[in-house]
Write a protein that binds this DNA or RNA. Sequence first.
DNA 1: AGGTTCATCCAAAACGTTTTGGGAGTCAAG
DNA 2: CTTGACTCCCAAAACGTTTTGGATGAACCT
Lengths: 336, 336
Amino acid sequence: MSNLKQLAQSLGLSITTVSRALDGYADVSPTTRERVREAADKVGYRPNASARRLRKQRAELVAVTLPSDPGHIGPPHFIDMLSGCAEHLAGAGLNLVIAPVPRGESELEMCRRFVDGRRVDAMLLVRTKRNDERVEFLQSRGIPFVTNGRTESPTPHAFIDGDGFSGFRQATLRFHAAGHRRIGHIAGPQEYYFAHTRRRGWQAALDECGLEASLCAEGAPTEQGGYLAALELLRRPLRPTALVCATDEMAIGALRALREIEGGETISIVGHDDLPIGAFASPPLSTMRMTGENLGASFASLLLRAIAGEPAENLQELRPIEFVDRESHRRSFPDV
Amino acid sequence: MSNLKQLAQSLGLSITTVSRALDGYADVSPTTRERVREAADKVGYRPNASARRLRKQRAELVAVTLPSDPGHIGPPHFIDMLSGCAEHLAGAGLNLVIAPVPRGESELEMCRRFVDGRRVDAMLLVRTKRNDERVEFLQSRGIPFVTNGRTESPTPHAFIDGDGFSGFRQATLRFHAAGHRRIGHIAGPQEYYFAHTRRRGWQAALDECGLEASLCAEGAPTEQGGYLAALELLRRPLRPTALVCATDEMAIGALRALREIEGGETISIVGHDDLPIGAFASPPLSTMRMTGENLGASFASLLLRAIAGEPAENLQELRPIEFVDRESHRRSFPDV
DNA sequence: AGGTTCATCCAAAACGTTTTGGGAGTCAAG
DNA sequence: CTTGACTCCCAAAACGTTTTGGATGAACCT
């Protein structure tokens, strides 16, 4: 539409001066600057993004990777996080692009495409695995990135994560203190760090109490996965009296299993994520959540600092977990 | 890292030839082409995206706008749609960027930023309003765009939408055929097209049956909104025996209201969207859904055709609604 | 031999910015 | 008058591609 050359011509100035005027440099007189600004406003001039990116050698883009397995992308409120992140990145002139993994391509190849084409200045990784090849690759390339969730990578990287170990340990200890002695765990896929660490928290608590950690079933991180895993646990001869579930979605699936079996209404249950819908489950789901407001903004801020070159060690946020007590964690159970 | 010049130099060719070899033009000999391709593979050469975009005058980017009201972004499976869309766009060399609306900025200003800066080749609009200023703006600018949901715009534009009117009309007629005579509607915010058209479908059915369309309450398109609206309806002297809810989320909120009031278990209910979680509600939620697989891919294909210049009239998909019958729509109610 | 076609390659321009390295003029100090 | 500092402006280069418009030979007809 309109570019610097046209604007400069219409003002009788060089494109250098116009460019510098708009960027607020001191070597253009205040009167000229004002004149330029007004003219630019009037014709609605915006610098061509591609040209600036080429010249400045910055993509002005941050990519967020989305795992392709359906239901494995993230919790339902994930999109709100993305929205918040994008909003804060926009304040720094960066846009957030979605980097899906096309069928037949590995997550690694996708990363490579983005990184080697200089298409992004940084990346945001979600649903990290314990050994995440994407992390290794980005580290080797020196591309700034932040992950949602830790990994077992030996070299440190930037992340935000909830302290799932402590959260699940505490939740299990609470059940123990309430008199429960058979506390089961509905686990997510163990290759994911979050699922593994939550399970370890549950296990650690049982160890401390001198109980055996045998009542564990693994499933997909979905309602269906939680439902099936719960059925498996509930069919055992010595079934659990309380269930600690890796996610709220799995917990909601487990809730259905409880409704379907006899005596299910005496079994207590707790989830994780604090999905709004949990308050509307039957019974209202007790859960836990990572503390802190506006997760997306925190990611954005970490990304910006990573791009600015701050070392990864300074960019690690391990947040405490807090409980959200509703009904499902305190159902009366018959003494055993 | 590596650019065309270096690659050409190392091969003893001009950058023209290298560029054309990689793009598969016929005016470079097969042997040279192979040689170039191998060398490019070896050093992991990828054309610089910004440079190509500048030269080709295409942003290679499509923006999706996200409304900022929390919970108003879209249904929980929205992210899956985005992922599918991004994946198919990537096949055509396009990336999907998130265009959030920063606090204090209108959706219109945001669109303007993206469009005037030539930052995008097309836009994807979600949660359209009946009179959507974004649609008007994009039409006036001649930017290709596709909406998720219709509008009342006089000039046609590309969209994909479910036939909510028919769906809600049919659902209401089914209740009538099952003997219900007081059929209520839990409506979403009426400025949204989808909410308005669904309400009109409910109303049309009641008109046909000679019943009064008075049992309607409006709420936010969230569980909480559905819960509150349902409470309001259920407190009326002549309360409904069946409820048609604008979305599954609202229906799940309403389900809680039914559990909390006496005789609530005799009231039938149906939602819309077919959220996976509906199958795990108590009772399992009957619902309806737009027909067709992989909505995201359909959006991508429409976007590509819009960018290619196909007229908007050819790019309108009004999809039929199908019912997903579970438990909640056929609860036995006492004869009145 | 002269003309035509074909296959293969390339130099240079263009895309629209930002930044570098001055240039011209003014003013005050020496 | 010269020098230096300062203010305001600008020409040109650079970023890395793609595309235009040939150039150079070789092969093929007539």
